[in-house]
C-alpha cells in the first residue's frame, strides 16, 4: 500500500506488475498511455496482457492511445479513506475497452458520457499511475479520435 506524501489522504495499492504488462507501466512513467497490439492479427486491446485475446499470439507490439474517452459511470468512495475520492469507468475513445480509474474532479462537475482525458501522477520513484479528468477543451472532437 502506498500513501503519497503530497496527498496523504489517498491510498493507492501497489499493482502486481507481471512481466507481460511492464511496458504499460513504463509507458505511464513516460507520460504515455500504451495498449498492446497483436503483431499477427492486428487486434488492439485493453487491459494489457501477454497473449492476444483474439488469436492467442504472443507477438505483442505497443501503440499509444489518444488518452481520450468518455465517462461511462462513477462513484464517490466514502469509506476506507479519510477523504472521499471518485472512481470511474472510462470508455476509451478508440472503442477497444474500458479503464477503471481515479477521477480527478468534484462530483458536481461529472456527467455520465462526458468527454474525459488521461493524466499521470507519480506515486513513487518507481510507480506512475494514470488518472482521468473531465476534458473541457476538446469535447467537440471526441468522436474523431483514432490512431
Amino acid at each position: 500500500m502506498i500513501k503519497l506524501s503530497s496527498q496523504p489522504e489517498i491510498i493507492y495499492l501497489q499493482p502486481k506488475n507481471h512481466e507481460p504488462t511492464l511496458k504499460f507501466w513504463e509507458g505511464l512513467k513516460n507520460r504515455k498511455l500504451l495498449a498492446p497490439r497483436c503483431g499477427d492479427c492486428g487486434e488492439i486491446f485493453f487491459p494489457p496482457r501477454g497473449f492476444c485475446p483474439k488469436c492467442l499470439s504472443e507477438n505483442i507490439e505497443w501503440v499509444e492511445l489518444s488518452g481520450k474517452g468518455k465517462l461511462h459511470s462513477w462513484t464517490e468512495i466514502h469509506y476506507l479513506t479519510p477523504k472521499p475520492y471518485i472512481l470511474g469507468v472510462i470508455d476509451l475513445a478508440e472503442g477497444i475497452g474500458r479503464m477503471i480509474s481515479r477521477i480527478e474532479a468534484e462530483h458536481k462537475e461529472l456527467k455520465i458520457d462526458m468527454p474525459m482525458k488521461v493524466d499521470f501522477i507519480d506515486v513513487s520513484d518507481k510507480l506512475t499511475l494514470f488518472i482521468w479528468r473531465p476534458d473541457k477543451v476538446d469535447s467537440k472532437h471526441q468522436k474523431s479520435e483514432s490512431f
Binding site: 495499492l13 487491459p47 472512481l87
Partner: peptide, 16 residues
C-alpha cells in the same frame, strides 16, 4: 480478482 491496471484503485472491495 481485478486486472493489474485496476488494482491501484481497487481499495474498496467490490462495492464500487
Amino acid at each position: 480478482i481485478y486486472d493489474p491496471t485496476t488494482q491501484p484503485y481497487a481499495v474498496a472491495g467490490v462495492i464500487w
